[in-house]
Design a protein around this nucleic acid. Sequence first.
DNA 1: GCCGTTTTCGGCCCGACTGTTTTCAGTCG
Length: 587
Amino acid sequence: MRRNEEVALLLDNIAELLMLKNENPYRIRAYTTAAQNIRALSEDIEEIARQGRLDDIPGVGKALAAKIREYLETGRLRYYEQLKQEVPIAAVDLLEVPGIGPARAHTLYVSLGITTIPELLEAAQQHKLRDLPGFGPKVEERIAREAARLAQRTRRLLLGVALPIAEEVVALLRSHPALEAIEPAGSLRRMKETIGDIDILVASRQPEAVTEAFTHLPIVREVLATGATRPSILTRDGLQVDLRIVAPDDWGSALQYFTGSKDHNIALRGLAQERGWKLSEYGLFGRDGRRLAGRTEEEIYHALGLDWIPPELRENRGEIEAAREHRLPRLVELTQIRGDLHVHTDWSDGHDPPERLVEAAISRGYQYIAFADHSQSLGVARGLSPEQVRRQHQLIEELNQRYAPFRILHGAEVNILPDGTLDYPEEVLELFDIVTASVHSAFDLPRERMTARVLRAIQHPAVDILGHPTGRLLPSRPPYEIDLEPVLKAAAEHGVAVEINGQPDRLDLDDIWSRRAIDLGAILATNSDAHSIRQLENMRYAVATARRGWVEAQHVINSKELTDVLTWLERRAPARRRRWRMEDARR
DNA sequence: GCCGTTTTCGGCCCGACTGTTTTCAGTCG
């Protein structure tokens, strides 16, 4: 599956180079479409190639199939090498500058030899751009501004940062009398792991009144734009929030349009066009220009012969086909979650004591919680010594008495040591009801050793959950080198659940791998990894990621009743866990 | 470069905005 991404990336790179050559845009799109479709495959592209079925992939015809085959067989692609000779690959960076698209980038490097953003900035400041065809003083000015801004680039926001702010704005505006509907749109509504802009959509017949209220909210630091359709503010935290105000009649088509993704919308408009119809933010229109749908999203999807598609799936990764064939997944919902299996207490690096966490979990409506404090070798997080584990075990037994029928599982987040062994001896591991095994050290092992390390841990009979399987931290730390495919297969085989860690900077597994995991038959655990009561809220981000990965409740272990979870925990170590059965019998 | 119950050639997503134009190209979302 790693090769799928490799091939997709190759095609995307070619598309960018073709842009710089100012090639036929449809030819360019053929490459990006093919890349997109390859990413959406649930099958290994090497396997598909071996069976000679490459041109069965939508968007892949004879020419692309040959290129993909060449790349898979030889590790390189002559066409791409040649293209790189013709076009300076560094110039791809220019496309990131707002105001520069394929045509201007082409002009820049052909006539001035500019390939980097610093070069661009310098040329703009020396007024070398304004006389180029398609440029002018205004464009030059804008490019100078944007290039300078890009130098100190503003990052994309984490979902966990953007969503609470958007919800605050929505809550503040919701009761305004001029407002008929309000909803976050864009990547936020799709719950992408990072968000570019915070876009909020409003339906109103009095846009001026809404704009007035919006630009005077208490959280406003600065008003960036007023105007009746698209006011924009900077919040006190320095985040930009754009409001889009549309007529109530257009609500459905506008919400659909502004939710995206771009690729999903393009595909949808393609469907409309096949029938001679037209789809835009103002509605779905027939050949005669009569409006067929637009008041609600459902109307639009149904008119196109589709089931309504949950926003999290709208990435053009097969959801449109599934909607047509009425086989969209019934995505897991936050309300179906019955417990949290990864919570830290103040015994290690959490902030709150076990009792308060239990009470918070009960008030969230959970049936169970698993404490998962760190293991002994993780000094920075005050990992628990075997002696502390024994004391914590006693405490948890007491708490179980006090809070029954709510159940506290004694767990641990046990380090997977570099050789794949676990960070406690067997007699300590036996004390736990549930063990999450995670990598917290030696992140830079070579791929094969890292994979072997994690595989060994999965095979250990004490391990129940594989914690944050790639170790990535958004946006700074990339995943460590690991081959997830065999890891997920092994997890499926041994009944080890794979975590979707809900910390906003982890979301690990991510959406794509979560989907792959359930395809391989693995079960998942959506966990908060909370280090405080407040962070129990991270569960929603774990669930959101699962939903983006087409995950249903049946795939999520902590959506199951306590008794089912206990049965699952017995699968490998019946003796160790038999006492649960005995206690249950006594209750 | 892909694709086909109107097509193997001629299409390929839509609308708004901006600035550079004197009728429209380029960019964006």
